[in-house]
Simulated assay, not measured.
Amino acid sequence: MAPRRRERPRRSLWHWLGSALLTFSAILGVIAIVTVAVCAVFGLRPVVVISGSMEPTLPVGSLIFYRTVPATAVSKGDIVTVPRQDGGTGLITHRITEITTKGGVTTLHLKGDANATADPLPYVVSSVGSFVGVIPVAGTIALAARTPLGIAAVATYVAALVAVIVFGRRREKAPSRHTGARRVPPVAAE
Rank of each mutant, 00 (worst) to 15 (best):
A152L: 11
R5S: 14
S25L: 07
A155E: 13
Y123P: 00
P120D: 13
V47A: 12
A145L: 14
P70W: 02
T101Q: 13
A2I: 10
H94R: 10
A159K: 03
I99H: 02
P83F: 05
V60P: 00
I79D: 06
I79S: 08
Y66K: 04
E190C: 09
G43Q: 12
L108K: 00
R6M: 08
A144H: 00
P70Y: 00
E55K: 02
P46Q: 03
P83C: 08
R183P: 00
Y157R: 05
I79T: 05
P185V: 00
P148R: 02
T147K: 04
G168T: 09
T106N: 11
V41I: 15
R11I: 15
G104V: 00
R45L: 12
H94F: 07
G129C: 08
A163W: 02
P122K: 03
I31M: 14
R177N: 13
E7L: 03
T35Y: 10
G168E: 06
T68P: 01
T68D: 15
I92W: 01
W14G: 09
M54I: 06
A37I: 05
G29A: 07
F167S: 10
T23C: 12
G180F: 04
G112S: 12
H94S: 13
S127T: 07
V74L: 12
A144S: 11
P46I: 02
C39S: 13
R5K: 09
A114D: 10
V105W: 00
S62L: 08
I141V: 15
A152I: 03
S62W: 04
V47S: 12
S126Q: 15
H178L: 14
P83V: 05
A2M: 09
G77M: 11
V80I: 05
E172D: 12
V162E: 00
P120E: 14
E98Q: 08
V124G: 04
V187F: 01
S62A: 14
R171D: 15
V132C: 07
E98T: 00
E190K: 12
V36A: 15
V80G: 00
M54E: 10
V82G: 01
E190I: 07
P186H: 05
F131M: 06
R183K: 05
T81S: 10
W16E: 15
R5F: 13
A188G: 02
R182M: 11
A26M: 09
A153V: 12
S126M: 12
G129M: 05
P185T: 02
A159D: 13
G29N: 06
G77C: 08
A181C: 10
A2W: 07
A174E: 12
I33T: 05
P120Y: 04
R4F: 11
P3Y: 02
W14L: 15
E172G: 05
G133A: 11
A160I: 11
L22T: 09
V74F: 02
T107Y: 06
M1W: 03
V38E: 15
C39F: 04
A118C: 07
R183A: 07
T117S: 14
V162R: 01
S53Y: 00
A40D: 15
D86V: 03
A188V: 06
P185G: 00
D119H: 01
V47E: 14
R183F: 05
P9T: 03
T156D: 11
V132A: 08
H15M: 07
A71N: 06
V164Y: 03
G150H: 01
S53P: 02
V82A: 06
I64R: 03
G88K: 08
S126H: 13
R170I: 11
L108N: 03
R10K: 09
